[in-house]
Structure formats: structure tokens, C-alpha cells
């Protein structure tokens, strides 16, 4: 890169990480597909699990090395304004793509609640053009309600009574996860989850302010609190899932309510775990390696943006999955 002026442009040397990363992704998904098929009894060969494992190990390793290189470059002063801007843009639009990913699931939720279930349940919608025959001929007995406590198949009495091919037997749920009424408010886990996550968004912001003031100790404390709150959320969510499965009989298999519920909260939970790990890494970097300066800390900023994003998704979840 000799001829280039690093003040303006920096182009990294060739690197073997990207192609190894692609390989890791391939091994991961190929292994995952084989493993999943194995669970369903249709695997082409039985060693999918090992491939998956190898892929994940490689993935994490390359991820680590890649970020290390990026950090080293930054510390070496190679990251000029332009590179920094590229990272900022990259992170912002990555988060946007995540938003769209969740949008798909929220769309599915809105669709089944407003179209599919009312239609099956024979309730003319507000547009007045949904036909009753679906309900009268195929699903007579199904009641439109949300959460859907009884699947259409259960409502008409099992597989042999009607024509529709199904995915299997449905069990449960016995109770919904929704707002239990004001009486149960304070023992209602989702409320506490909301409190925890909203608080953590504040604490990470406070940590950021302290970082800008170069107050390292306070940074350590507030960021640490954020990580702890993240872990708390995950634990609470675990308890919630445990209850759903064991007490309420609500599972992925219990019809569209269970499916959308676990899909949305599950992917959100996964993102919280990722976010917590990222924040933990930031904490380690700042406390142990002494990274970040008041003016140069994009890694931290990106992590906090991600965390805010996860928080916003939860608020939507709280409203659309739990309350409404």
C-alpha cells in the first residue's frame, strides 16, 4: 500500500480470514442441516454433529482473529476517518437488516391474528369479504380468539374427522402468556423482563457517557451492571420458558400461538445472548486491555447500538406478543 496516503485511504492487505470464514459458515450450515435431518430420520449420513461442531469452532476462531486484526489496525492508527465512517455505516445498515429480519416475524404474527385465525374461526373481518364456508364446512366448532387456546384441529376433534393433512397431534396450551390482569401484574415475568431490559439500555448509555468523560472506573461499573442485567434477562426468560413448557403446556408444537410465541421470543432471546456476549467482550477489553479512548471507541458504540436495538425489539414484543 506504499503509494497510498493513509491519511485519506487505507486498503488492507490480502487476508485469508474471509475465505476461512466462508468455509466456517458452510461447515456450520451443512452440519446443522445434516444434524436436523438426522433428528427427523432422513439424514444422508450420521456425522452431521461433528461437522457442525467443527464449523462453529472455526467460526468463533476466525471471528476472534478478525476482530483482533481490526482492533490492532485501529490501535496502530491505520483507521483514518474514512475507515471509521465505513465501520459506522456498516454497523448501522447491519442493524437495519436485523430489523427487517424481525419485521418478517412480526408480519407473520399480525397476519395470523388479523386474517388467518378470524377466517378459520368464521368471523367476518372488517373488510367484509371473508367467506364463511371455510369455517362452516371445515372448522365448525372453532372459536376465534387470541391467544388461540385450541387449534382448529383440536376444535373439530382430531385428524381423522376432517380432510386436512396436518403436521401432527397438537397438545396444549392450557394457559396463555398474556397480560394476566392488574392483579397478577407484579408476578408477571414479562413485566420484569421489560424493566430489566429498559434499565440496561440506560446503564449502557451512562457507561458511554463516562467513557466520553474518560472516567474508566465508572465505565467499568456501569458496563458491568449492563452485562449483569443482560444475564438477568436471560435467566428470567429461561424461567419463563420453563413455565410455558411445563406448567402451561405451551410449546412450539401447540399451534400457531406457540409457534409465533417461541419464534419471536426465541430469536429475540438469541439476540440478547449475542448482545450480552458482545458487551462482556467490551467490558473485558476496557478493563483488562485498557482499550477505548474518549474519542475513539467505535467498538463500544457499535455494541451499545446493538443493545439498544435488542431493547427496542423487546418493547415491540412486549406490546404485540404479551399485551395486545
Amino acid at each position: 500500500m506504499a503509494k497510498q496516503d493513509p491519511e485519506i485511504y487505507y486498503v488492507p492487505e490480502k487476508s485469508r480470514k474471509p475465505i476461512l470464514m466462508a468455509l466456517a459458515m458452510f461447515l456450520t450450515v451443512f452440519g446443522a442441516a445434516t444434524t436436523i435431518n438426522h433428528m427427523s430420520g432422513t439424514a444422508i449420513f450420521p456425522i452431521g454433529g461433528y461437522i457442525l461442531f467443527a464449523g462453529l469452532v472455526l467460526f468463533v476462531t476466525i471471528m476472534f482473529l478478525w476482530f483482533r486484526t481490526a482492533i490492532m489496525e485501529n490501535l496502530a492508527g491505520l483507521n483514518n476517518e474514512q475507515v471509521k465512517q465505513s465501520y459506522v455505516l456498516g454497523m448501522s445498515w447491519f442493524i437495519f437488516s436485523e430489523v427487517m429480519f424481525f419485521f418478517g416475524f412480526f408480519f407473520a404474527l399480525a397476519y395470523v391474528r388479523n386474517f388467518a385465525v378470524p377466517w378459520l374461526g368464521g368471523e367476518a373481518d372488517l373488510l367484509g369479504t371473508m367467506r364463511q364456508s371455510t369455517h362452516d364446512i371445515l372448522w365448525n366448532g372453532l372459536v376465534t380468539q387470541w391467544p388461540l387456546m385450541e387449534t382448529p384441529q383440536q376444535a373439530v376433534g382430531g385428524a381423522s374427522q376432517q380432510l386436512i393433512a396436518n403436521n401432527g397431534e397438537f397438545i396444549g396450551p392450557h394457559a396463555s402468556m398474556s397480560f394476566p390482569g392488574w392483579l397478577g401484574l407484579f408476578t408477571w415475568l414479562p413485566l420484569w423482563n421489560t424493566v430489566v431490559l429498559l434499565t440496561s439500555s440506560f446503564t449502557v448509555h451512562i457507561a458511554h457517557l463516562h467513557l466520553k468523560n474518560n472516567d474508566r472506573n465508572k465505565l467499568t461499573v456501569w458496563l458491568g451492571i449492563t452485562v449483569l442485567l443482560g444475564i438477568t434477562f436471560i435467566l428470567l426468560q429461561y424461567i419463563e420458558y420453563h413455565e410455558a413448557y411445563n406448567q402451561y403446556g405451551l410449546t412450539l408444537q401447540s399451534g400457531i400461538y406457540g409457534t409465533t410465541f417461541f419464534m419471536l421470543t426465541g430469536f429475540h432471546g438469541f439476540h440478547v445472548i449475542m448482545g450480552t456476549v458482545i458487551l462482556l467482550v467490551m467490558w473485558l477489553r476496557s478493563t483488562i486491555a485498557g482499550h477505548f479512548s474518549p474519542s475513539n471507541h467505535f467498538g463500544f458504540e457499535a455494541a451499545s447500538w446493538y443493545w439498544h436495538f435488542v431493547d427496542v425489539v423487546w418493547v415491540c414484543l412486549f406490546i404485540f406478543v404479551y399485551i395486545l
Binding site: 416475524f105 387449534t151 403436521n167 412450539l252 419464534m263
Partner: peptide
Amino acid sequence: MMLIDIHFGGSFFSAAGGGDPVL
């Protein structure tokens, strides 16, 4: 969602569970 329906008993696209193929 397809993956969930195929392998994990989801019902996004199955009317029997309250979903809809048209979704």
C-alpha cells in the same frame, strides 16, 4: 419459518394449527 414447520412441529403454514399456507 419453513424450517420450524418442517422439523420442529410449528404451524406457520398449516391451517390445522391456526396458520395459513398463504402467509
